[in-house]
């Protein structure tokens, strides 16, 4: 169960697959102040990413997975105190 829904918070763990997108979108639309915790998220399907981009829930924790965080940083508003060892957030990344 990659997404666990609390009262006002969805906790995404592991890889969120395409099937999750429908539920997540419905849940996010149903309440205005709903939040998402991505700390334990290691990857997500593009459809899930779309939900986050389109419905702009407050993200309480950025993914600890560095690669994923780098992809998400430009398009989502991630919390200021990120997981450790995350490189400076920039709109663009230039890998080595």
């Amino acid at each position: 169960m990659p997404i666990r829904y609390d009262k006002t918070r969805a906790v995404v763990e592991g890889h969120a697959a395409v099937e999750e997108a429908g539920d997540l979108a419905a849940w996010l639309i149903a309440g205005a102040a709903r939040k998402v915790d991505l700390a334990a998220c290691t990857g997500m399907h593009a459809a899930v990413l779309q939900c986050l981009m389109a419905l702009t829930p407050h993200v309480t924790a950025a993914p600890q997975d560095e690669t994923l965080a780098r992809w998400l940083a430009p398009v989502l508003v991630l919390p200021e105190d990120p997981p450790p060892a995350k490189p400076a957030r920039r709109r663009r990344k230039v890998a080595a």
């Binding site: 997108a21 639309i29 890998a95």
Partner: peptide, 26 residues
């Protein structure tokens, strides 16, 4: 060989009620 990426919606996002997560808009 990926060295740079940028991700954006193709069209501005629809209003939440009209949003369809299964129509790819990236």
């Amino acid at each position: 060989g990926l060295v740079w990426s940028e991700l954006a919606p193709r069209e501005p996002w629809a209003a939440p009620e009209a949003f369809d997560p299964y129509v790819c808009n990236l």
